[in-house]
Nucleic acid binder design. Structure first.
Lengths: 335, 335
DNA sequence: TTGAAAGCGCTACCAA
DNA sequence: TTGGTAGCGCTTTCAA
């Protein structure tokens, strides 16, 4: 492998000049720059990442911590991950993939050994034990999610409260008054992933503000759970005309069970889903949905990390406004 | 951050001794080792990854290249990825996540800049343009999949031919004679991901060997595609008593449409799925399935990379034998 | 506009 | 069993 010295020799300049051509950190005459670039191309030179990290204390690598549990929504995680990788590349960074099961130790390991410039952490819980460790690192971190006490750590996420409000406003505008929330599984609430709570809060608040008759119900994403959930809803809120479904795994089964019960969507009952666009589109019926913008959130997380690294100002907590797209699963209530 | 010199001073030894305690590459007296380890713990010392890479030409990082298309089976990809990360950690390696869309350039970038010791590449196509680039790298690579010409590159995958044969043998043993394959979408075949072809070959060969009456049909994983596929099958193979489904996305819809057509599984028609265990278990009915052992394949890919790095012998192409588990979707044909 | 050279923190060779 | 030390390949300060 060619080194910077080889390039320097080939171009008839000093190694530092080659370095400056590469980094652009000082002016170089056009003529010199060209000779250097020609030599770089000629020799197929790529700077040695380790040497660079050692000399500059910059790795150009971001850590991304993903949950590896399979009870989480895998496709959404994958969307976040690819968004983070793609965005990182536009900022000339690579991504080191860590799994949540390594816990605090994993974060400290990569940070202390200077493998990464910053960390992006997914699946953050309300009172996540990793937060205190993150605060002590010399590298900045960005959370995808919102813990109870985000002090000192940047957070980005969808504004789930606003998402719930938007779903209800849409249904209310269509004339619905009796609306039920099919929520995530009890395990999600118990784990303390706050997006579920935030959605619930938004739902309850908006329900009061709009003077609606609503109820909420967690839902185990299997056939039985869905049946039980829908039965409870019918029992507790007879005459319900609309469902807000915040449970991607259960979504398809909810639609099937509603239909199996003899009700048509949207003629007999309207449905608003909270899910990524492509999920909403790949249902038997294109669903009116509030998008989970994994791509935007991932990109914003990277952008935030970059600002932190450059010492540029950031918003400590950035909640993206939701977007509702009306498709074919919502209509005015019958009668 | 503490350096190796700080540790050496604190322990009253030379830096090289600290290094050897860490690497175990030469004998150290128990007494010295303890003093050094105490100093390491005391100072919270973690060796600087870049410095280490520079001095040893070893990064302890593996590159993992994943497809980021969403038309691929996302949960399976995620399973491979987490398996690779988990296995890498047991070998004291981390994983740099690359996306396929960076193509050859991405591979060359991380390899030439010495960011990784080896590369693991998923979603390899029959005549993948990346292969020639991989062969030129100084780092070894391991493919998950099997291209047409794997010369010079290690490959690991499930033995899809054997998987097809096993599915057919199971059904034949139950007494089925008329069996149809619901295959992946045409796009998968067109792209040249060879597992589809290998499965097809195995299916056709085993069909002949077992003297069965079979047909094969690709299947677009949406409602319409599934309906069309099943209709074709009924038209071309009237009296079909069993289905082999090698299309995870379509699986649930196949079951639904079969039922919608008034047939019960397994009373009227048996179904064998080719999919990860958890997918088979999460269907309305636990399915008899040939497992796609993502975890094993990912682990084996890492193991192979490690052997390559240590100069230990490997098998150039390692196809894991399939495992069929009988559950509740197969029975003897009616009548 | 460019060059010289001192490190960055570690590994591994050569000695003892 | 241990120490000394020359690099690994780059960045960046100091000089010119």
């Amino acid at each position: 492998m060619a080194t910077i010295n080889d390039v320097a020799r080939a171009a008839g300049v000093s190694p530092s000049t080659v370095s400056y051509v590469l980094s652009g950190r000082r002016p170089i005459s056009a003529q010199t720059r060209e000779r250097v670039q020609a030599a770089i191309a000629e020799l197929g030179f790529h700077p040695h990442a380790g040497a660079r990290a050692l000399a500059s204390s910059r790795t150009n690598v971001l850590a991304l911590v993903v949950p590896l549990r399979t009870d989480v929504n895998v496709p959404v995680i994958m969307q976040f991950a690819t968004a983070v990788v793609t965005a990182s590349r536009t900022h000339n960074h690579d991504v080191l993939l860590l799994t949540k099961d390594e816990g605090t130790a994993g974060l400290e390991r990569v940070a202390h050994s200077t493998m990464v410039d910053a960390l992006i952490v997914m699946d953050v819980e309300r009172d996540d034990v990793r937060l205190q460790a993150l605060r002590k690192l010399k590298q900045p971190s960005v959370l995808i999610g919102l813990p109870e006490d985000p002090a000192g750590i940047a957070c980005v996420d969808l504004d789930f409260e606003a998402a719930a409000a938007q779903a209800l406003r849409h249904l209310a505008w269509h004339g619905h008054r009796k609306i039920a929330l099919v929520g995530p599984s009890p395990a999600v609430y118990k784990r303390g992933t706050t997006y579920a709570e935030r959605f619930l809060t938004g739902f309850t608040d908006a329900s009061a503000a709009l003077d609606l008759e609503t109820m909420t119900h967690p839902c185990e994403p299997d056939r039985e759970g869905v049946r039980a959930c829908l039965a409870d809803i019918d029992a507790q809120l007879p005459g319900v005309t609309a469902l807000v479904v915040h449970n991607e795994e259960a979504l398809r089964m909810v639609l099937e069970e509603v239909q199996a019960g003899g009700r048509r969507v949207p003629a007999d009952i309207s449905v608003v889903a909270i899910c990524p666009r492509d999920v909403a589109l790949n249902m038997p019926l294109p669903l009116t949905s509030v998008d989970i913008p994994a791509h935007d959130v991932g990109g914003l997380a990277v952008e935030t990390a970059m600002r932190l690294l450059d010492g540029r100002p950031i918003e400590p907590v950035r909640l993206l406004p939701p977007t509702l797209v009306e498709r074919e699963s919502t209509a005015r209530p019958a009668g």
